[in-house]
């Protein structure tokens, strides 16, 4: 097997909570292993509060992990703190496209400056002509008309802002692009444009994608492999088609059954009721899904299921998978 582009091992992030309870910890991300091969597109799904956003921020080196390592082409990026990582050459290699395009653009920066800033900072491009050439090239790649480059974000439509967000991320030619719900704030017609653009960019530039979304129908369009998270842990990893046709984890099954589908109108489908367990100091020997799981037994309350292999690239963390 070739060396993965990104290899996260036992990545953990805990936050102290509350003043009263001494030492109580919120387990946002708990011992997550994740690899992304060069040119691969991996999907990450899970409900709100499952730790997707924290995982994205960890992988993007916006926050430091409590423990665990992130290797980029075999080099441990977590050897330095995120504050120092900002100035390292590897900083340019992982970029993020943020969720809300209107909030992720500096309102006082023109489009040009938004795209040029990472070029200046990360690649040290100082020459004005060279800078302009690269900004224009990135804008062209994402299909942003030239006349919009001197505008402010509030003068752009949602779809145009999304393009600027993508242009800013790819202008430094990253190896891994993390897409954090890139289309959730957009209308479907614009979403279609952006999804096609992303597919096209990946084909042309050969980047790896980590595509985070709550919409499984969107994730499956672009990704070859999908990672499902539940309450800070990875519960299932599988090739996309296999995940949809033969999900192993009961949470994945419920998730897939919940996708609205006119073709399955009126069918009784498994529903996931109730609320997740508390992420604060969870019992390390209890499955995180226990209590909400339709098949939970005593064993689930006394032993945390490990992520086990169920086929080529298919892993699930359930005693009954």
């Amino acid at each position: 097997m070739t060396q993965p582009l990104l290899d996260a091992r036992a990545l953990t992030k805990r936050y102290p909570v509350g003043g009263g309870k001494r030492g109580a910890m919120l387990h946002a991300v708990d011992a997550v292993d994740l690899t992304i091969a060069p040119g691969e597109c991996v999907g990450l799904v899970g409900e709100s509060g499952c730790g997707k956003s924290t995982l994205v921020r960890l992988l993007a080196r916006l926050i430091d992990p409590t423990s665990g390592n992130i290797f980029l082409d075999g080099a441990d990026t977590t050897a330095v703190s995120q504050a120092r990582f900002v100035t390292m050459p590897d900083r340019a290699r992982i970029q993020v496209v943020f969720q809300d395009p209107s909030e992720s653009l500096n309102p006082s920066f023109r489009v040009f400056d938004s795209i040029a800033d990472p070029l200046k900072r990360l690649l040290g491009v100082r020459d004005r002509d060279k800078l302009a050439a690269q900004v224009h090239r990135a804008a062209e790649l994402v299909g942003l008309p030239r006349e919009l480059i001197e505008r402010y974000p509030h003068q752009l439509s949602g779809g145009q802002r999304a393009r600027v967000g993508i242009a800013r991320a790819i202008v430094v030619e990253p190896s891994l692009l993390i897409l954090d719900e890139p289309t959730s704030a957009l209308d479907v017609s614009v979403q279609a444009i952006i999804l096609r653009l992303l597919a096209d960019l990946q084909a042309r530039l050969g980047m790896s994608y980590l595509f985070v979304s709550h919409d499984l129908n969107v994730v499956r369009l672009l990704c070859s492999r999908i990672v499902v998270m539940y309450l800070g842990r990875v519960v299932e990893v599988a090739p996309t088609e296999e995940l949809f046709t033969a999900p192993r984890h009961p949470y994945t099954r419920a998730l897939i059954a919940s996708i609205p589908d006119p073709a399955r109108r009126g069918e009784a489908r498994p529903r996931l009721d109730g609320s997740p367990r508390s992420p604060i100091d969870p019992d390390p020997n209890t499955c995180r899904f226990y209590g909400r799981c339709p098949t939970g037994t005593d064993r689930c309350a006394t032993a945390m299921p490990e992520l086990l292999r169920f086929g080529e690239g298919h892993f699930a963390a359930c005693h009954f998978a």
Binding site: V190, A192, L195, R196, R220, L221, I259
Partner: peptide
């Protein structure tokens, strides 16, 4: 997007 669509098939 539906469970049956492809990215090429998506119309903007």
């Amino acid at each position: 997007p539906t469970p049956r669509s492809t990215v090429e098939g998506l119309v903007s």
